[in-house]
């Protein structure tokens, strides 16, 4: 039960029931689609970047409590961050959810996102927690590739 409380913290349940920044975004400069074939979860992410800074981001889609809450909290955490800062945060987040139980996690800069540390106990759910972040990574790197070809 303690593992379960650790995983489904109030913050996660709250965000999964009423996700923030849910819906379409006006004037998006980057979009990404994430898909988890294991469960059929889908996320559609729209981002507006100006001068390397994420001005706004919103998401749509359906998923489990973990993936929905993760997308919701990600959109909150990345508002106003630079793309480079966002990628760095993804790296830290990924490290946190894949650090084996019992080992210390580096939670500096993760703030509210530390609520996902309980995912470590359920390795099969790591994909749920990182789906939105992978989608973000694809969305921002896809555009840099497109930029190269132009």
């Amino acid at each position: 039960m303690s593992d379960l409380r650790e995983l489904y913290q109030e913050v996660i349940l709250g965000h999964s029931k009423s996700p923030r920044n849910f819906g379409k975004l006006e004037g998006a400069t980057h979009t990404g689609v994430g898909f988890n074939p294991l469960c059929g979860d889908k996320i559609h992410l729209q981002i507006r970047v100006r001068d390397g800074v994420i001005e706004a981001l919103r998401f749509e889609g359906s998923g489990c409590a973990i993936s929905t809450a993760s997308a919701s909290l990600m959109t909150e955490a990345l508002q106003g961050k630079t793309v480079a800062e966002a990628e760095a945060l993804f790296k830290k987040f990924h490290e946190m959810v894949t650090t084996p139980m019992g080992q210390p996690i580096d939670d500096a800069a993760l703030n509210k996102l530390t609520v996902f540390s309980g995912v470590r106990e359920f390795p099969v759910r790591v994909k749920c927690a990182t789906l939105a972040w992978h989608t973000l990574h694809n969305a921002v790197s896809e555009t840099s590739e497109t930029a190269k070809t132009e």
């Binding site: 039960m1 593992d3 379960l4 995983l7 489904y8 469960c39 979860d41 998923g63 489990c64 409590a65 973990i66 359920f122 759910r125 749920c128």
Partner: peptide, 12 residues
């Protein structure tokens, strides 16, 4: 409730 969340609760 998503089936994966059900699966995780039952797993515990």
């Amino acid at each position: 409730v998503h089936p994966h969340d059900i699966g995780t609760v039952l797993d515990t």
